[in-house]
Nucleic acid binder design. Structure first.
Length: 522
RNA sequence: GCGGGAGUAGCUCAAUGGCAGAGCAGCUGCCUUCCAAGCAGCAGGUUGCGGGUUCGAGUCCCGUCUCCCGCUCCA
């Protein structure tokens, strides 16, 4: 009996994968559709078809099983304690003030009509004379080259050797008047007046609770699932017997009103996250951060992302988020998608968020030090630090699709989907070789048996080759054929998707055999 | 948000301003003893959507939506 044929690196001689072809297959076979397509679609929203729904569900179930339900041994040799949570999408708006999303997601932006560039208004500063009618130069704060360039232009215009601090001042762009803005030359412009007024691009979706639509009833769709976990931290501690170190896991939808949704499902306005907030004593941050980073990376490999298209990348200090500057670090688990190649796109971020969130909610809720966690073993009261492995379910599903897509000109289908058996939407196809001699009846009986535990398909129509080809495009790892030998010696023929090779198996052994292939216990 | 390209059956594509078609896929039946075979049949469309010009628009014009590429954005 051969070993399971898990997904692996495509051999170097296979043709390159094109995103256009992957999108086409997703649509043709029912993995992913455009949302509300019959009305022309809607930018940034995607639906999963029957096969795609199974695939994404397999991904989320595997994550939940491996993170919450199954035993996971941590860096100290002890089992890692993680409990589940399922929070609402709409929460008290104060949550988003405390988290910094109201503000961070409300940045005013400035467009340049001449250069077509866009800048964050609060990043721009303006250099020039305060005298009426004189020219001003804008540049991005901290850009020394731009500052030098603006200074030179100013000196030439004002006919002086160096700026006079009494007259030539540096002011934030947001502080100048409309008249002054009309006299300002943009960072990448040659003439004044090309910069627009600062405009809001709010990335949080807004709604209203109740019938009255006013400022007081305004609410937001959550832009991340993490905050629901933080605001429930105390509830979980009080209602369960968890002790630090422990984690809280959540899978759920989040919404961001992205300026430019792009690249198929990679950047959508509605998406699903799989997040863990793991709470630790501050002294153990480095150990847990490194362990989570490495375990999460190996987890993605275990479900089929085994090629060099998966990488782990530690962030540089200067790209760290505001809450992570002093921490143990942040890293991204990245996949080389066809549309990012030769670069990579983020699948999951593992971040040491320190105590930023718990502390912020303690302050904003007025609970302050009463929100601290009491550690009995250490006899110490503190805000636990957090290691956050935050993964995108839709991005993970897309990576599985891209990784699985394997052109093979020698096959009738021209392509097959090389999903890991655990991820495959359909685990097996059951086919009578011909539609007579009692084969359909035997096949249907086997189908009913396997169906109790697995998604399997039964198909008695058309030629066997056509049925294999269809299963290749759906990514079904095994096809089980009832043939004349089944009638004489109770064996079936198993055809393996990746190698197209066949093996004989006693029909009674099939259920246990299939469990093993998919990674379930006997 | 800016610039460029595209949109006709599920897919790949035809149709000079003049009857919207083909191949493949799908479905039904026959056939078929291992890789999209064959035969017969069926179904599939307000040509992305909305206006306009015209006796007549898939085709010309305007608007709009969506997708792709390049910018921008992505705490």
């Amino acid at each position: 009996m051969s070993e399971p044929t898990a997904a692996g690196s495509p051999s170097p001689e296979v043709p390159a994968k094109s995103m256009e072809q992957i999108v086409s297959l997703c649509r043709r076979r029912g993995f992913v559709f455009q949302s509300s397509e019959i009305y022309g679609g809607i930018n940034g929203f995607w639906d999963y078809g029957p096969l795609g729904t199974e695939l994404k569900r397999n991904l989320k179930n595997a994550w939940w099983q491996d993170v919450v339900q199954r035993e996971l041994i941590g860096p100290t040799g002890d089992a890692v304690d993680i409990v589940g949570l399922d929070c609402t999408i709409i929460m008290n708006p104060k949550v988003w003030q405390a988290s910094g999303h109201v503000g961070g997601f409300n940045d005013p932006m400035v467009d340049c009509r001449a250069s077509k560039a866009r800048y964050r208004a609060d990043h721009l500063v303006v250099l020039g004379s305060i005298a009426a009618g004189s020219r001003l130069w804008a540049f991005v704060e901290g850009d020394d080259a731009a500052r030098t360039k603006a200074t030179k232009a100013l000196c030439k215009y004002e006919k002086c050797d160096a700026p006079d601090p009494a007259r030539h001042v540096l002011r934030p762009f947001t502080a100048i008047t409309a008249d002054e803005r009309a006299r300002t030359i943009g960072p990448d412009a040659d003439e004044p007046g090309s910069l627009t007024e600062p405009r809001m691009f709010n990335l949080m979706f807004e709604t209203h609770c109740g019938a009255v639509r006013d400022e007081d009833s305004k609410a937001y769709l959550r832009p991340e699932t993490a905050q629901g976990i933080f605001v429930n931290f105390q509830n979980v501690v009080d209602s369960t017997r968890v002790k630090v170190p422990f984690g809280i896991a959540q899978v759920g939808k989040a919404f961001r009103n992205e300026v430019t949704p792009r690249n198929f499902t990679f950047r959508s306005r509605e998406f699903e996250q799989m997040e863990i907030e793991f709470f630790i004593h501050p002294s153990e941050a480095n150990q847990w951060y490194a362990w989570w980073r490495d375990w999460r990376f190996s987890w993605w490999q275990s479900i089929g992302l085994t090629s060099s298209n998966l990488q782990l990348r530690e962030h540089d200090r200067d790209e760290l988020a505001h809450y992570a500057k002093e921490g143990a670090g942040t890293s991204d688990i990245e996949y080389r998608f066809p549309f990012t190649a030769p670069g990579f796109g983020e699948l999951e971020g593992v971040a040491h968020r320190a105590d930023f969130d718990l502390r912020a909610h303690a302050t904003h809720s007025g609970k302050n030090d009463k929100a601290k966690y009491f550690d009995q073993a250490r006899n110490e009261r503190y805000f636990p630090h957090v290691i956050e492995p935050s993964a995108g379910a839709d991005r993970g599903t897309l990576a599985l699709l891209c990784e699985a897509y394997t052109p093979d000109p020698s096959r009738p289908s021209g392509v097959f989907m090389r999903f890991h058996p655990r991820m495959a939407p359909v685990k097996a196809g059951i086919f009578p070789l011909v539609n007579k001699e009692g084969m359909p009846e035997i096949g249907e009986k086997l189908f009913r048996t396997l169906r109790k535990k697995h998604v399997v398909e039964f198909d008695e129509k058309q030629s066997i080759g056509k049925r294999y080809a269809r299963m290749d495009e759906a990514g079904t790892p095994f096809c089980i054929t009832i043939d004349s030998e089944t009638l004489s010696s109770q064996t079936v023929t198993v055809r393996h998707r990746d190698t197209q090779q066949q093996e004989k198996l006693g029909i009674e052994q099939v259920p246990a055999w299939l469990d093993r292939q998919i990674g379930l216990e006997d």
